[in-house]
Design a protein around this nucleic acid. Sequence first.
DNA 1: AGGCGGTGTTAACAATCGTTAACCACCGGC
DNA 2: GCCGGTGGTTAACGATTGTTAACACCGCCT
Lengths: 206, 206
Amino acid sequence: MAAAHPSPPGGAARTEAPSRRDQILTEAARLFARHGFHGVSIADLGAAVGVSGPALYRHFPGKEALLAELLIDISERLLDGGRERVGHGDPRAALAALVDFHVAFATREPELIVVQERDLANLPDEARRTVRRLQRTYVELWVDTLRRVHPGVAPAEARTVAHGVFGLLNSTPYAPRADQAAARGADARVAVLRRMALAALDAAPA
Amino acid sequence: MAAAHPSPPGGAARTEAPSRRDQILTEAARLFARHGFHGVSIADLGAAVGVSGPALYRHFPGKEALLAELLIDISERLLDGGRERVGHGDPRAALAALVDFHVAFATREPELIVVQERDLANLPDEARRTVRRLQRTYVELWVDTLRRVHPGVAPAEARTVAHGVFGLLNSTPYAPRADQAAARGADARVAVLRRMALAALDAAPA
DNA sequence: AGGCGGTGTTAACAATCGTTAACCACCGGC
DNA sequence: GCCGGTGGTTAACGATTGTTAACACCGCCT
């Protein structure tokens, strides 16, 4: 019934045929973002990728493991991306680069942002610790850079500032409308949020 | 086993003995914030207030109704508080007053902030529409005030700015530590977030 | 040809949860 | 001194859900 394109066996499709596993992860992000982890059943998830029910256990050991993979992956991507941008010289430039990176990420993958800040509590203990550690390291990246720009700022205050900027930049999922000349609107939002973040970072220290 | 102070029958206790109903709402906010709506069972909730299980049905028609009351109440309080602060003259002063109000609210009741932005999707349809309408009106309060300060800003852009500032101010729940000389720390955070928000609002228009 | 790993399917299970039923204790007012 | 309302209890029900079992098909490799 699924009428599956078996994907051309000879060469890679134009843009890398997405494996079933990746399809599942993508749909899971979408559905978890919309309805919350507990608001999506395994059956719903299967239906969303065209298979039904327990077929998911061929790809993941369980529902929580699926969430864990989503959240660990996004945390690692954030941390890696952040690390790439804090190396070179000028701390002010590094801070701006962090802002650009984070806002681009949040704009490109709003579902993952939503899931990460909402469903952390539904992770099994070990995965949750892992994600928390990655997140904390990412925050410290910001804190260190910020304190190189403003040496007077206490660590606790810098952390408040960092969390505040995350909240600001992560507000993209609550965009007024998703359609309406999407590209233009998204670009404009990015520019606005960028300006706001840089101003907020500058104003933070007394 | 509960060893309940029956609360002095003659006069009101020093600070208004909290009714069982209010106890339940308070604990519900705490638990929903920590574990999510679906992560808290009716039995958990009962246990948290010292009764067990279905006793809650003496006070609320159901679990969803409980959530609805929490969210509608907070939305109304935000809207009412906002309305009180946008009346008089100077738009710039009004905007600052909105910031002060919102950050105070988010600092005083972080659990409600978390629940509101996380569990809206778990509301039954009618209540969700009600909450959405209240939230939208609150946002429009900000949008109108912002556009009186910066007349050039388009409505869509102003909405982006407002949501961004909410994200910034609502970041208080992710405070570094809840203890550590709580009062001092909270006051300092409020001041930092206030400065950041005002700077971001000023920088938003091109 | 034959077997095997990968990927589905449906049916069944056990657990959990929201909700209801039936019953009971206390307490203030006629 | 009964009596009803208020707020509590435990037991049971029905639905949903995550997970497992048992089975089937298909393409590839030897």
